[in-house]
Design a protein around this nucleic acid. Structure first.
Lengths: 188, 188
DNA sequence: TATGACATGTAATCTGTTACATGATTAG
DNA sequence: CTAATCATGTAACAGATTACATGTCATA
């Protein structure tokens, strides 16, 4: 039903975290580590418009102080449900091919948008998919590493290593979620 | 002078490695770990056309066997020079914000397209830029980690860790390039 | 004779980039 | 008075996605 590009989900996730204006969202993209999304008004305002057309967000106008009007967007029930659907999709090999940034974003939003159980489920699904991916990378490496120039081989090794490290991080993150809630810094 | 999108450089690098047809290039994108580039004909053929218009590649038609004609592209001198220019650009903080994939691709191509010295220079430039980036990530983490939901915090930690691991890989890669050439498997 | 691999392309559509335009308020 | 920050938008353009169209050859 709803087709939403990557930027749309990033916006939905941020708006779910806290209602925000286009300007607020631009600031987030330009000033935090979410810089891989464009902070240009030509990307954000049309994207918000599309989300509003699809009834995934709704704007409330703030005329409050003398400043120019702000349109503050908040999620609708439909928006929350689409966001949750996106986050909870099981991870297929296909999701891995274009990098893990989207998956990490889904995970980052998961706890607020879908709850701890969903976060844990996402991690487990991620782990399964990544293990298969590492195996296929290893195969490809075995098959081709002797024919590659040094720089290409090193670059490949970097990809393989970083995937293995990511797998370690997943195990750690799963452990965090599987331990019953416990206050930070507490001595057991 | 020449404005070339990311896909264009990927094509240039692959063609430099070995002259190839659009079909060959599609197969590389669909069957190797370079899957983050689209293998769709609607992306590749127009992109090759643009490169040809800019005189960065030239096609030679192969009618050889009874099969449908193949247009095999090879780099022109201009193409080789643009590729080299792209690879040797010093890495700015700006290059880091949208992920390291482009930089890794530049590095992978660097040895063939620009020589070992360029590969080493690229690594050093990458190292400087990444160190600054790690520092700014750490600052952001310090400033915000206590206010984040667990999943967001874990995702942030993953990004920070992976950047630190990348830095370790760079040190290793620099060591490989700084050691005088030596045959693989040789005992010192 | 039908399917699948080889091989190249186009058209409609969507999205993002770049650059411009507007307008209010605050700080120097 | 000027620049910076807050705040929203549009228009032209380039590029990617998706789906379709075409055609050859080998093999089952």
């Amino acid at each position: 039903m709803a087709r939403i590009p990557a930027l749309g989900y990033a916006l939905l996730g941020l708006i779910q975290h806290k209602p925000a204006s286009g300007y607020d969202l631009r600031k987030i993209f330009s000033s935090t580590s979410m810089k891989f999304y464009s902070d240009s008004p030509g990307a954000i305002y049309p994207a918000l418009g599309r989300l509003a057309e699809q009834r995934l967000v709704r704007a409330t106008i703030e005329e409050s102080m003398g400043l120019r009007r702000r349109r503050v967007f908040h999620l609708t029930a439909r928006g929350a449900s689409e966001l949750k659907k996106w986050i909870m999709q099981p991870i297929t090999p296909d999701h891995l091919t274009r990098g893990c940034d989207q998956i990490m974003l889904r995970f980052a939003f998961s706890e607020n948008a879908a709850g701890r159980t969903a976060s844990l489920g996402l991690l487990k699904s991620f782990e399964v998919a990544l293990k298969a991916h590492v195996a296929s990378l290893r195969n490809e490496y075995q098959a081709s590493h002797t024919f590659m120039p040094t720089s290409a081989r090193l670059a490949f090794e970097s990809g393989l290593e970083s995937t293995k490290h990511l797998l370690q991080w997943i195990e750690y993150a799963i452990a965090v979620y599987e331990k019953p809630a416990r206050k930070k810094g507490r001595v057991s």
